[in-house]
Amino acid sequence: MDALDGNAIAGVLFEVFGAEMTTSAAVCANCGARAPAAELAVYLRAPGTVARCRTCMSVLMVLVTIHERTCVDLRGLDTLEIPASRGPSGWG
């Protein structure tokens, strides 16, 4: 399966973190590569989503959404910057 990129999970990241995250820097805990979340290699496979480091392909984030509840595993991340300014999200 071809990897997409972090743009594809902008919506769920907004839901989880309450902010626009695609421009946020994600630092890989394995190799230290730093990249905007938009550039992570993303594998969508409902209900789970895996985001990998594009440099070493380590798993950085796993997001699983079932019945409006999203479980988030960020073990592979060293840091993720969350913007202080937030905007509205949600369905309408």
Partner: peptide, 11 residues
């Protein structure tokens, strides 16, 4: 239609 967005700040 049910929409969420606009979304994304990178592209």
């Amino acid at each position: 239609l049910e929409l969420r967005g606009p979304i994304g700040g990178y592209f």
